[in-house]
């Protein structure tokens, strides 16, 4: 029971930060999603010690463990978009493959250049 109350209180705190950040974005018209600002705000609050890990971590860990659940209702929206995949399947495939390969190379190359001395691993 105590655990449930604690989870609820921590979730409420996370929700409060999210709500404030969303209102801030709406008020300022900033072209950045409220949840992105929320992550930055919570990180800053943790770094400053205003919010302690104990105040949020149980709720955060629980919600993140089941994060994919929230994506299911959104993905169900695809039921109205079937024709796009029939009509443009090939272009979509090329776009997704190319835009994966190029950044794979870019990220790997840059990091490896900057940390050349470290031991390589054998995957």
């Amino acid at each position: 029971m105590k655990k449930v109350v604690r989870l609820a209180a921590q979730t409420a705190l996370l929700w409060g930060i999210y709500w404030v950040c969303n209102r801030f974005v709406q008020a300022t018209g900033l072209p950045i999603p409220g949840n992105v600002i929320g992550v930055a705000v919570l990180f800053t609050l943790l770094a400053l010690g205003v919010v302690k890990l104990e105040h949020v971590q149980e709720a955060a860990d629980f919600l993140l463990k089941h994060l994919v659940f929230f994506f299911i209702p959104i993905a169900v929206g695809l039921m109205d978009w079937g024709p796009v995949f029939y009509d443009y399947g090939l272009v979509l495939l090329v776009a997704i493959v190319a835009s994966s390969l190029i950044p794979f190379w870019a990220v790997g190359f840059i990091t490896q250049r900057l940390h050349r001395k470290e031991k390589p691993c054998t995957p």
């Binding site: 705000v41 919570l42 943790l46 949020v56 709720a59 659940f69 929230f70 929206g77």
Partner: peptide, 22 residues
């Protein structure tokens, strides 16, 4: 139903700051 189920997505995303901080 979707709107009810995704109500906690925002707070969950904000929670990503926790692994980042760790």
């Amino acid at each position: 139903g979707r709107d009810i189920m995704t109500f906690l997505l925002g707070p969950a995303t904000v929670g990503l700051a926790v692994p980042l901080y760790r």
